[in-house]
């Protein structure tokens, strides 16, 4: 605990993304109505650009089961489509109220080519075994290696209210270049409602952000990046979580001289 509390200065290792990783799943709205079609964007960081991506939706009214499993084609299931859409189950109309309910989860599994058998199994169709695994996604992972595999999930709320929550927007600005091992100051502005717990989360392909996250006490905050010692381009991603299920992604880059 002591170490945890004291380790709060310098670039955070947690912000370095140097292997295959699903970094964000961003639906166009954080809260949808039953039957609403939702576009969605998934950010996958892959240094080797050699991966496959499986995405699916699980609408749960009971733990461990998905409404989508009952249909012949799994609604919202897609392969190798980071940008796509899915439809929130119309069956939720009977339960949706003005109170947003966390009923929908959007899953994304990225695997290095040839590493995950599920992609080959899908070619043969949706078997019962696959349906079971998609309802308990961690089972898909059990026999897979740590490296080259990334599974991520995003929750979504369902309601029938007239003014559902919307996604925030995020813009960040900073220098184009930085000295090796130098610090670059970025300024990020968020538009939208910010709830308690709202924060920015930084990621980079080299070097590191100072602090894995920065709390959002106002709509504009500064965020520092410590550059790597090696020269070259560095990819940057900053993600805002507004504390009320909304999120947005900013992507950019900086060159180390």
């Amino acid at each position: 605990m002591i170490a945890l509390l004291l380790a709060c200065a310098g670039p955070s290792e947690d912000t370095l993304v140097d292997e295959l990783r699903v970094l964000s799943i961003t639906p166009e709205v954080p809260e949808a109505a039953p039957g609403q079609q939702v576009r969605q964007d998934t950010l996958v960081v892959d240094p080797f650009e050699d991966h496959r991506l499986l995405q699916w939706t699980c609408t749960s009214l009971a733990p461990g089961s998905c409404l989508e499993a009952e249909s012949e084609d799994w609604e919202g299931l897609s392969v190798d489509e980071p940008r796509g859409s899915f439809t929130v189950s119309a069956a939720l109309a009977s339960v949706a109220t003005d109170e947003p309910l966390p009923l929908v989860r959007r899953w994304a599994l990225a695997c290095e080519e040839g590493l995950c058998p599920v992609f080959d199994e899908l070619d043969a169709g949706l078997t019962e075994a696959l349906r079971r695994d998609l309802q308990a996604p961690t089972e898909l992972l059990r026999d897979l290696p740590f490296e080259g595999v990334s599974l991520a999930v995003r929750g979504m709320y369902v309601s029938s209210r007239e003014d559902p929550a919307t996604q925030p927007t995020l813009t960040c600005a900073g220098p184009w270049e930085v000295e090796p091992a130098g610090t670059a100051e970025f300024s990020c502005a968020v538009e939208g409602r910010l709830a308690e717990g709202a924060a920015l989360w930084g990621y980079t392909s080299a070097g590191g952000w100072v602090g894995a996250s920065v709390p959002l006490r106002s709509a504009e905050v500064g965020y520092s990046l410590v550059a790597p010692e090696e020269a070259g381009p560095v990819q940057l991603w900053v993600i805002v979580e507004d504390g009320a299920s909304g999120s947005a992604v900013w992507s950019g880059s900086i060159r180390v001289r």
Partner: peptide, 16 residues
Amino acid sequence: VVQRYFDTDSRSFVPV
């Protein structure tokens, strides 16, 4: 821990 997944809401890894 035999695997983990990433919860993008909390932006933290969940162990398997």
